[in-house]
Design a protein around this nucleic acid. Structure first.
Length: 559
RNA sequence: UGUCCCAUGGUGUAAUGGUAACACUCCGGUUUUUGGUACCGUCAUUCUAGGUUCGAGUCCUAGUGGGACAACCA
């Protein structure tokens, strides 16, 4: 592998600069910190690739940390799904961490802040607190409880912890600056009372720390050197640093938060709320519906981890708003699948082809290569007989020179078999073609080495022997949304842009060897695209999902 | 009438004061028992105006445009 060295992105520049400033490379440590309140999607995949990619680049540990401070939204099932998705992408975390493991330490630190006069218990309603907070253009004002005594604060906070108060009766706030330009610095809430069972700590805690108080301190506890997050957290950095200032000790690594722009992919949505709505309203079958750009959906669709990683790597990382074209993702998908997927023949829209000069009842086994890209994958046997299925679109009674497929009087190659010539076709009362007749050249068998077999014909068709054909269900997926950016329209809801033709289900005719393909494996249906065996498959009926079509320059010309 | 962030082909990213490049897309061609793949080629880019400099995509100022910030969410 002679990989061209990619230029450093600005995140790597930050690390390199820190190393030059004297940070020991041994101290490098990263983390991926999802909240377990939903499934990971393509946007998370980029963040995973960024953080774990840094870990690989510097050969340094990366923690998987669940930011589980809100028991109202978080569930163990998401923890499991997230771990599975990260593993499927092919990454290994160093430590599996939970912010909830740090609840006691966070509490102790909070008590220390109170003692230092840096935090206080506020006993107003959330409306009152919000009113005093001001707006982005107007400063806030101090609330009436801001100068409570340390003793009273300590007592109330302990009472909150012990469950002596109901939700919203009291909160703990950092005492910073109600006039700050940065609204996050206007005495942010550190703790609130939540009467819910937590997926890990059960009912041990009655109070739960807020994101800002938790995140930086968790980074510090784990000694994360660089904490990368999306741009929306940029205003939080000031607070992140303020909270760190309250607890850092000299000899320890002080984590550094830096922000990058979230990467958006066209023709999809990634907000958890919107994905949830698609599931709830039955637009899709679930979080792992193959049309969803969740990692589990992409996996079920037939995407490979490498395709996603290559994609993430190729689109880079920066600070400006972006909308990456889905074509980019599909390029990397085809690029990888082309290398790793075996080829098979499957007719999606079958029409009968009868080889009139092939003996009745005769059949023979032909050799078919499993991959044109990798000869070491060998060959399989495909049965051939007098009656075949071919694609309806591969025959026209007559056509112009640009049509390379079967017409009456013209020769085409049946892939891995013989050269045939169209002779006639049968139509029903409405004029629809129901059957095609052709003759074959017995000397033209693929690979036989005869002069006839070497003859050049422009078109090659895939086919399946009718008596041997295996009917399979094929789910043809297309993009879920018909516009590049469904969730940025000011007037219309994203649901209005759903593509009504994102799924069509057909029965296709497969070559018998396809019965052996295991669930989850993606193969190429020669000339049609890549297809993956869906878990819905049964002994009686296999189900294939179309992962992506092949590039089709003919389809473009045809328009 | 605030603070902060951002601005390079259609899309995404490089160029670290010294010839604006790479990938995708589009278009055209060669090869091909997949109208796939591979290979080759074409088109196309620094938001505007000043300033600093021998030299600015890069540094400074202003403007314009886009985005973020008023959850007891993360």
């Amino acid at each position: 592998m002679s990989e061209e060295k990619r230029a450093n992105n600005f995140i790597e520049d930050i690390i390199e600069e820190d190393l030059q400033q004297g940070l020991s490379e041994d101290l490098l440590r990263f983390r991926f910190p999802p909240e377990p309140n939903g499934f990971l999607h393509i946007g998370h995949a980029s963040a995973i690739c960024l953080n774990f990619g840094l870990g690989e680049k510097y050969n340094k540990p990366v923690n998987l940390r669940f930011d589980d401070t809100n028991p109202a939204k978080e569930e163990a099932k998401y923890v499991e799904a997230i771990q599975r998705d990260v593993e499927w992408l092919g990454y290994e975390w160093d430590q599996l961490c939970f912010a909830s493991d740090y609840f006691q330490q966070l509490y102790d630190w909070a008590v220390q802040l109170i003692k230092n006069g840096k935090a206080y218990v506020d006993s107003q309603s959330s409306e009152e607190i919000a009113a005093q907070k001001g707006t982005p253009t107007e400063p806030g004002v101090d609330g009436p409880y801001r100068n409570r005594s340390v003793e009273e604060n300590l007592q109330l906070f302990e009472g909150m912890k012990n469950g002596e108060y109901g939700e919203s009766e009291h909160v703990l706030r950092a005492k910073i600056d109600m006039q700050s330009n940065n609204m996050l610095m206007r005495d942010p809430i550190m703790y609130r009372v939540v009467n819910r069972s937590h997926h890990r700590t059960g009912t041990d805690w009655k109070i739960y720390p807020m994101y800002d108080w938790t995140h930086g301190e968790s980074d510090y506890i784990e000694q994360i050197s660089h904490s990368f997050c999306t741009l929306e957290f940029l205003p939080h950095r000031e607070l992140y640093d303020w909270f760190l200032d309250q607890v850092v000790e000299d000899k320890k690594v002080r984590p550094k938060q830096r922000e990058f722009a979230r990467r958006n992919v066209s023709h999809t949505v990634t907000s958890k709320r919107k994905l949830q709505k698609l599931v709830d309203q039955g637009v899709v079958s679930g979080w792992d519906d193959p049309r969803m750009t969740t990692i589990s959906g992409l996996r079920r669709r037939g995407y490979t981890a490498n395709a996603i990683k290559n994609f993430a790597d190729s689109i880079g990382i920066a600070k400006r708003d972006n909308l990456v074209d889905m074509n980019h993702l599909e390029f990397h998908l085809r690029d990888d699948l082309n290398k790793v997927a075996n080829r098979v023949m499957c007719v999606l829209d079958p029409i009968k082809l009868i080889i009139t000069n092939y003996p009745d009842g005769q059949e023979e086994m032909l050799q078919a290569e499993n991959s044109q890209e990798d000869e070491s994958r060998g060959y399989r046997e495909v049965p051939f007989s007098k009656e075949l299925w071919i694609e309806r679109e591969d025959f026209k009674e007559s056509a112009n020179k640009k049509y390379f497929r079967l017409t009456i009087g013209k020769e085409v190659r049946l892939k891995n078999a013989y050269i045939i010539k169209g002779t006639s076709c049968v139509k029903d009362d409405d004029g629809n073609i129901t059957e095609i007749h052709a003759t074959y050249d017995p000397d033209s068998k693929s690979g036989s080495g005869t002069e006839a077999s070497m003859r050049r014909v422009k078109g090659t068709l895939h086919w399946v022997s009718a008596v041997h054909a295996l009917p399979v269900e094929v789910r043809l997926y297309d993009r879920l949304f018909s516009v590049p950016s469904p969730d940025t329209d000011k007037e219309k809801d994203f649901m209005e842009f759903i593509n009504p033709d994102s799924l069509s289900v057909i029965t296709a005719m497969a070559e018998p060897a396809m019965r052996q393909i295991p669930v989850g494996e993606t193969v190429q249906f020669q000339r049609k695209g890549y297809f993956c065996v869906d878990p819905d498959s049964t002994e009686e009926k296999m189900v294939f999902n179309r992962t992506v079509t092949l590039r089709d320059t003919w389809a473009k010309l045809d328009q």
